[in-house]
Amino acid sequence: MLARRGRELLLLLLVPLVLGGCVDYDVGIEFDSQTHGTIVQQIELGERLSAFSGATAQSWLQSIERRSRQLGGKSRRLNDRQVRVEIPFNNGDELVRKFNEFFNPESASRTEETLESAELPQLESHMAIVQRNFLLAIHNRLSYDLDLRSLGLSSQEGKLLVGPGALLDLHFRLTTPWGAKVSAPEGAIAPEMTDDGRQVVWTLQPGEANHLEATFWVPSPIGIGALAIAALVALGHFVKYRLFPALGFDRRRRPTSQPAKPEAETVVNG
């Protein structure tokens, strides 16, 4: 019983992205500015999965909630089969670190009991981002690779527990304030674009090595604030040293004192 329970739990922990028809997994990256953004995930378990092993499915949802809290995020249960997770990030480096840590939990693949129970598919998930600062805005180049070619999960006896033909319903969303430009090299996925390019949606394909790229700009509050301060300083300098003298005012000159009245002459009668 313990080995069976461990095999089911391992399937849900290590292959959360591969249960098509059983799991609807929507992953989103929302950029607001240079210093703020959110990793948003919405997971819905299908009725077949809940009926197959409700307790195991709930354990997997709880592990997602726990991992999100460890990364400074929060989760909200929409119902008994659906959860929404939000993980904030403050810059591109933090986005990459939190995203890769969430989808590559080291401890999940190191349980001796579960390793003996099944032969696991090797799923590789990796995100990278390159940023260039142009003072008022940041140019971002984001790339994401998810290898789903080895989705089948087999037991030691060779029995296929999960096949790649009925596995995946996964979407990856990118939301930006000014819109994104999608690069489509050979092998890349063609996405759907809505809201004038502000939201880009990729449907990832099971059984394939998925690769996506996008470039976009986000505003820089730090650069905008620095420019505003410099403008105020320049305006103050202009008013003090150019505008006031041109109008005939010199604040450094003290007002001229009034001339002293002549003393009244004293008449002496002789």
Score class of each variant (00 low, 15 high):
E113I: 15
D145W: 01
E113Q: 14
T175G: 01
L13Y: 06
Q205G: 05
Y144R: 06
I29Y: 13
L148P: 11
D80T: 12
L174T: 00
N104D: 02
G37A: 02
R4S: 13
D26R: 06
S220F: 02
W178F: 11
E44C: 08
Q205V: 15
D24K: 03
T114F: 10
R253C: 08
P255M: 06
S125P: 02
R81Y: 12
R81C: 12
F249M: 01
V239R: 03
G6V: 15
W178L: 13
E192K: 06
R97Y: 13
E116F: 11
S33W: 13
V201C: 07
M1R: 09
N100T: 04
G37E: 03
L146S: 00
P185V: 04
R97S: 04
W178M: 11
Q34Y: 08
P121D: 03
I29T: 04
F89H: 02
R149E: 08
Q41V: 10
T256N: 09
K159R: 09
L10Y: 09
G73E: 00
R7V: 13
D196R: 00
E213R: 07
L120E: 08
F249N: 03
H237K: 09
T35N: 12
I64C: 04
H36T: 06
G20K: 10
L11R: 03
R48Y: 12
T111G: 12
A166I: 15
G187Y: 09
Q34L: 12
T266V: 14
E44Q: 12
